[in-house]
Amino acid sequence: MAKITYIEHNGTEHVVDAQPGVSVMEAAVKNLVPGIDADCGGACACATCHVYVDPEWLPQTGQRESMEESMLDFAYEPKENSRLSCQITVTNDLDGLIVRLPEQQG
């Protein structure tokens, strides 16, 4: 299990125990974290699961691929540390991960 902290735009924190193998998006949806819509269910087709990865965790969460990169280009207020959470797979190495949610999706 990996502990992941999701911080809503208003500062509310949600700490979730995530199973390795699922995505950071799925762990949020299954644990009723608000603010991640994930309309396409994780197909990297909709850009409604946008999160900001805590800069400290960027190396562990890996690189954006080109499809994700293009989708993020048009997300709401993209930043250097923006990711689509459906494209980050939970591993034991991500225990302690912190992600912040944008003010809105899409």
Partner: peptide
Amino acid sequence: VNDPTAFIVGKR
């Protein structure tokens, strides 16, 4: 097809 930029630009 394999062109997410075209999709998102189109959507807007």
